[in-house]
């Protein structure tokens, strides 16, 4: 079972729900939580564990071998991303623009552009008493999160059995990184808050999930702080509301310290129980 926890808007409580839900579920099942918000990974702040594995993650980019190159210009011609440019008798490569499509490398008549790995981030695997936690962390200055996200998902898929509950903490937004984090999952939990910003971004996230033909439901966080428009929207659209977590300053305070919420706040635990029951009933 693979579940992605996502939201259009940032700061609605994705990480709070991911970390608490994984810890809560791990009491009675095998659970792995993967932090796919590789631009700003936060889950580790809430989970203390021992590092059991780490590796550098890379993407493949071409390297120019001058000696064999005939300067025919084919590489520049085939690259759609302006990552390979011929200037005089030099071939210049801009790795940050490269999408690793291999066209320049494989269409080069002399094989002068082999693809070599370039580091873009790190993967770390931690273990607590009953929870596995995997984190992807993009190097600062790297633009493309997607290749790293897909490597973290691949690692989780290889390392853990079908029976393990896999939770993915997704990045905010609705573009490529979120799609990568959601498309292979059995279910997506969209976390929102009852404000016009929350509603606006929820609608975007819902449309994205529909384009992906993805099953999803909504958790309303900070319930009571704004208005009823989220509930009205979900009801009109036939979207299941899985749980409503009451607005509570104590949650913000515990979160600020990097602490788990459910051991201390009953209402939060109740909401987790509802989410767990809902998720248990999928498929």
């Amino acid at each position: 079972m693979k579940i992605t926890i996502a939201s259009g808007k940032g700061g609605t409580g994705k990480t709070t729900i991911s970390t608490n839900l994984s810890s809560y579920l791990a009491i009675g099942a095998d659970v792995v939580l993967a932090d796919l918000d590789v631009e700003e990974p936060n889950s580790k702040l809430f989970i203390e564990g021992d590092l059991v594995f780490e590796k550098a993650c890379d993407k493949r980019v071409p390297r120019w071998i001058k000696e064999e190159c005939t300067l025919c210009g084919k590489c520049e011609e085939v690259c759609r991303f302006n990552a390979v440019i011929k200037v005089g008798d030099e071939i210049l490569i801009f790795p940050e623009l490269c999408h690793s499509c291999y066209a320049c490398s494989e269409l080069c008549p002399t094989g002068s552009l082999p693809m070599i790995p370039q580091k873009i981030g790190e993967l770390k695997h931690f273990k607590t008493e009953n929870l596995d936690f995997v984190e992807g962390r993009l190097d600062i200055g790297e633009e493309q999160a997607v290749p790293l996200i897909s490597q973290v998902i691949e690692y989780v898929d290889e390392k853990f059995s079908q029976d393990t509950i896999k939770l993915f903490d997704a990045p905010p937004g609705t573009s490529c990184p979120v799609i990568e984090a959601s498309r292979g999952s059995d279910f997506v939990i969209l976390v929102t808050e009852p404000t016009p910003f929350g509603l606006n971004d929820l609608k975007l996230a819902v449309e994205t999930m529909r384009v992906l033909c993805q099953k999803f439901g909504v958790v309303i966080n900070r319930h009571g702080i704004g208005d009823n428009s989220i509930e009205e929207y979900c009801n009109a659209e036939g979207i299941p509301i899985i749980a409503k977590i009451p607005n509570d300053r104590r949650v913000a305070e515990l979160y600020s310290k990097g602490e788990l919420i459910y051991p201390k706040i009953q209402e939060f635990e109740t909401a987790l129980k509802q989410i767990a029951e809902f998720v248990g009933g999928i498929k």
Partner: peptide
């Protein structure tokens, strides 16, 4: 601006 540290923020 946008959240994160990747391409939209850059």
């Amino acid at each position: 601006g946008s959240p994160g540290v990747g391409c939209p923020v850059i």
